[in-house]
Amino acid sequence: MSYLIKPKQYHALLDLQQTELGIKQIKSFFQQNLSSDLRLRRVTAPLFVLKGTGINDNLNGVEKAVSFSIKDMDNAEAEIVHSLAKWKRLTLADYNINEGYGIYTDMNAIRADEELGNLHSLYVDQWDWELVMPEENRNVDYLKEVVGRIYGALIRTEYLVYEMFPQITPILPSEIKFIHSEELLQMYPNLTTKERENEIAKKFGAVFIIGIGGKLSNGEPHDGRSPDYDDWSSKSKNGYYGLNGDLIIWNPILECALELSSMGIRVNKEILAEQLKVTNNEDRRNLYFHQRLLSGELPQSIGGGIGQSRLCMFYLRKGHIGEIQASIWPEDMRIEAEKAGMPLI
């Protein structure tokens, strides 16, 4: 069901024309910084892939992809992508990208099962990126290093927005806080996952929560994660599981945590086999993507996605993602959002 948060005393700081200018400048500046900091080259991405190849991201395993039949290919079924988590790794191999370099792309997707609200839309737009890394860097320290580079790009982009629109003052802390999901659970054992995220984001302003997908001491994962791209089952030297995580900041307009990025070190063939077994998905071993990974054809990589509309929403201090992107919304949400000062595009 859709759910609308009405920010207290909300007033848009930018009109529609200023907003569109801000979106353009933010997207251009941030992707240039991301490309430079991680040594990524831009590639062209698909909007849809063939069903049954294992390339599409199945998210939590319950979301249904939008699909259609291709008349000129004997009605073969295609799916609109959910994300490009696995497609990117295939591309690294097919383009022969060298170690220490990678790719990024504009990913556009449709998630028809999304619960609509201030932060969630049917339309998903993000920068998907993937970087070839050496096997010996499969550790939390390397994960933190890459997160730090991305956060540096976020800081620089926030200052660009301030130069363009002085009424929007920077609020991101100079450093991002790293915490494992198990540590977060121990800090707030009586809170739900989202409540824990709200508390830690409000406390530090920006946080990277490590370890998403594996079960914690309460028997539940912090959040769901597919078994065939992020490594959430490797054990680090401190005894915690997971080489992935979510980058979250505090949203002062909605007064809640705002996830900007999901990323991590990707599975190798041993971890893939283990995670498929644990999640009862061993039938995927016969799919195209999984066969190429298990046969050793794909490079070790780290990668993730960064939400474009969410990023712009935060920087431009908007109360609803529909103020940034054009999508479809329930009519009652449009009416109520308009009354709350949030006209949806």
Score class of each variant (00 low, 15 high):
Asn268Gln: 14
Asn190Tyr: 12
Ile253Met: 02
Ile200Asn: 05
Thr279Glu: 13
Ser233Tyr: 06
Glu183Cys: 11
Leu191Glu: 06
Asp283Pro: 02
Gly211Ala: 04
Asp283Asn: 11
Leu260Ser: 03
Ile210Met: 09
Asn198Ile: 06
His290Lys: 07
Phe289Tyr: 15
Glu270Ser: 13
Leu276Arg: 11
Glu195His: 04
Asn280Val: 08
Glu259Leu: 03
Tyr288Cys: 08
Asn198Asp: 12
Asn218Val: 00
Glu220Trp: 08
Ser236Ile: 08
Glu259Gly: 00
Gly214Thr: 01
Leu260Met: 04
Lys202Arg: 14
Gly245Lys: 03
Leu254Cys: 04
Tyr288Ser: 12
Ser236Glu: 06
Asp246Cys: 09
Gly219Met: 10
Phe208Thr: 04
Cys256Ala: 07
Asn268Phe: 12
Phe204Gly: 02
Asn198Ala: 00
Ser262Thr: 15
Gly219Trp: 08
Ile210Cys: 07
Ser234Asn: 09
Leu258Ser: 14
Pro252Ala: 07
Leu247Arg: 01
Ile209Leu: 06
Met263Arg: 04
Lys203Phe: 03
Arg225Cys: 11
Arg285Met: 14
Asn251Cys: 15
Ala206Met: 05
Leu184Asn: 14
Cys256Gly: 08
Asn198Arg: 05
Gly211Lys: 00
Asp223Met: 12
Glu270Arg: 09
Tyr288Phe: 14
Asn251His: 15
Tyr288Glu: 11
Arg285Glu: 15
Trp250Arg: 09
Leu185Trp: 07
Leu191His: 06
Ser217Ile: 02
His180Arg: 09
Gln291Ala: 04
Gly242Asp: 03
Glu274Leu: 15
Asn238Glu: 07
Pro227Met: 05
Asp228Pro: 10
Glu255Val: 04
Leu254Tyr: 01
Asn190Pro: 05
Ser236His: 11
Met263Leu: 14
Lys215Cys: 00
Leu287Met: 12
Asp283Leu: 08
Glu183Ala: 12
Leu185Phe: 14
Asn218Asp: 10
Asn190Ile: 04
Ile249Gly: 02
Ile253Lys: 02
Tyr188Ser: 03
Gly214Gln: 00
Ser261Met: 05
Phe289Cys: 09
Pro189Asn: 07
Gln186Met: 14
Ile212Met: 09
Leu247Asp: 01
Ile212Phe: 11
Val207Trp: 00
Ile212Gln: 10
Ile212Arg: 09
Glu282His: 08
Leu191Trp: 00
Glu195Met: 05
Leu276Ser: 12
Tyr229Cys: 10
Ala206Phe: 04
Leu184Met: 11
Ile200Tyr: 06
Ile212Lys: 11
Glu183Pro: 09
Ala257His: 15
Pro221Ala: 03
Gly205His: 09
Asn281Leu: 13
Gly239Asn: 02
Asn218Ile: 00
Ser226Thr: 11
Leu260Gly: 02
Asn238Arg: 07
Ile265Ser: 06
Gly264Arg: 02
Leu293His: 10
Leu287Asn: 10
Gln275Met: 11
Ala257Pro: 12
Gly213Cys: 10
Thr279Phe: 06
Met263Pro: 01
Asn268Gly: 11
Glu270Cys: 10
Asn238Gly: 02
Ile209Ser: 07
Ser217Asp: 12
Asp231Val: 04
Asp231Gln: 07
Leu276Tyr: 14
Gln275Glu: 13
